[in-house]
Design a protein around this nucleic acid. Structure first.
Lengths: 146, 146
DNA sequence: TTAATATTAGATAAAAATATCCTAAAAAAA
DNA sequence: TTTTTTTAGGATATTTTTATCTAATATTAA
């Protein structure tokens, strides 16, 4: 949609950590099976997150991973940039024309610009704490309902 | 971004047709070199567009392709759907959680919903005639400037 | 110290997207 | 009719993304 499958998995994993973490280490295996993510694939992604210091990882018995910063200090966009890499220097034209800039815009340029800005704001604004709280709230609502 | 490279090329080609077409046939080769699209790749895409009746193609000398409908009757979204296929029945959750629907939404659901709707509206609203006129207007402005 | 357990890391594989090649078919010009 | 030109279509190749496997390393428990 906007980020890769890898980033999608990464966001899921990070939300999981934010929801369940009370300073305990959580196994990659656990997250993978919970969210149906291929284990070894997630393991790779976790390594990337670790290298970007978004999480800390611990080997061996009682090993696992945990957030490396307070959840409210990690934004969705940080995760996406870590996994997919930062966005290209010069924003690509949405319909691939190279005579496209703010001054000489392609015909869809201005409309897309607004939408892209909205996305950037959304991903930059949401932090893991908010998202985790949302998830918890929803679960609770579902539980009471049943 | 939202559509494949193939769709991007297709949009470019269709805009080209809308801009230059005066019922003349335009060679795929011409479009490919103009926009730096791999010729044989574009040829494939053109076949798809043809099968979806968005263009008509003619073989042999003086052959080429042309729009199959008035430019104002072709929307960007038609091109994207033709090339990438229609969108999936049930909209995927943007962060891949499957307990996600309007009633039980994932934490980013509602925000994304608005953005996705904006995109859909934009692509569904813009037609080739508008875009072609924009391109022509911009070119003219550039020409006068020089 | 040994065994069990989790991540790390490197290699490999499978799938999907993008790109290329070659021959055929069609159409017009010579 | 023959040649030239242009798209059509099938096969193949390359690249990128996603997924898997195996062995190594670190850590803790027994």
């Amino acid at each position: 949609m906007l980020y890769s499958k890898s980033s999608e998995y990464a966001i899921q994993a990070m939300i999981y950590l934010a929801v369940y973490q009370k300073d305990t280490r959580i196994m990659v295996h656990k997250i993978a099976s919970e969210y149906d993510i291929p284990l070894y694939f997630l393991a790779k992604i976790v390594q990337t997150l670790s290298k970007h210091h978004l999480i800390r990882s611990f080997r061996g018995r009682n090993g696992g991973i945990k957030l490396n910063k307070p959840a409210n200090d990690i934004r969705v966009i940080d995760i996406v940039y870590a996994v997919d890499g930062p966005p290209p220097e010069k924003e690509m034209c949405v319909i691939g024309l190279d005579e496209c800039s703010d001054s000489v815009a392609c015909p869809l340029h201005n409309n897309w610009k607004i939408i892209k800005e909205n996305i950037r704001v959304l991903l930059g604004h949401e932090n893991l704490e908010n998202l985790a709280n949302e998830v918890i709230r929803k679960r609770e609502a579902l539980r009471l309902q049943a």
